[in-house]
Simulated assay, not measured.
Amino acid sequence: MSLSSHLQELKKKHQHLSDHVAVMQRSPATDDLEIAKLKKQKLMLKEEINKLSTH
């Protein structure tokens, strides 16, 4: 897998998590721990994307 396709895949995953978090935050039966886990995953993906983009 090339670097650019890997970056695209990471960005897709990040966007999917963003969308999922937004939906969960609008839901009345929100699990705050689950949202926190998803946000942590988003942050880790964002850091990975940034790291790979600068190299």
Rank of each mutant, 00 (worst) to 15 (best):
S2E: 03
S2I: 01
L3V: 08
L3M: 11
S4C: 05
S4N: 11
S4M: 09
S4V: 09
S5M: 02
S5A: 03
H6T: 06
L7R: 00
Q8E: 12
Q8W: 13
Q8A: 12
Q8F: 13
Q8M: 12
E9C: 03
E9R: 11
E9F: 10
L10S: 00
L10T: 01
L10E: 01
K11R: 14
K11A: 10
K13Q: 10
K13V: 00
K13W: 09
H14V: 03
Q15N: 02
Q15K: 12
Q15D: 02
Q15F: 07
H16P: 00
H16T: 09
H16K: 15
L17Q: 00
L17K: 02
S18M: 10
S18D: 04
V21I: 15
A22E: 12
A22N: 10
V23D: 07
M24S: 09
M24R: 13
M24T: 04
Q25L: 13
Q25F: 06
R26L: 07
S27N: 12
P28Y: 05
P28R: 05
P28W: 04
A29I: 08
A29E: 06
A29T: 05
D31H: 10
D31E: 09
D31Q: 10
D32C: 07
D32F: 14
L33W: 13
L33T: 10
L33N: 14
E34I: 05
E34H: 09
E34C: 04
I35Q: 06
I35C: 13
I35L: 08
A36L: 13
K37D: 08
K37C: 05
K37T: 04
K37P: 01
L38S: 00
K39Y: 05
K39W: 08
K39A: 05
K40I: 12
K40Y: 15
K40Q: 15
Q41P: 06
Q41L: 11
Q41Y: 07
K42F: 04
L43V: 05
L43T: 12
M44W: 14
L45T: 06
L45W: 11
K46F: 14
K46C: 10
K46S: 11
E47W: 13
I49Q: 02
I49N: 00
I49R: 03
I49A: 02
N50F: 13
N50T: 12
N50I: 11
K51P: 00
K51H: 10
K51A: 12
L52Q: 06
L52E: 03
L52A: 06
S53I: 08
T54K: 14
T54A: 06
T54G: 00
H55L: 14
H55S: 12
H55D: 08
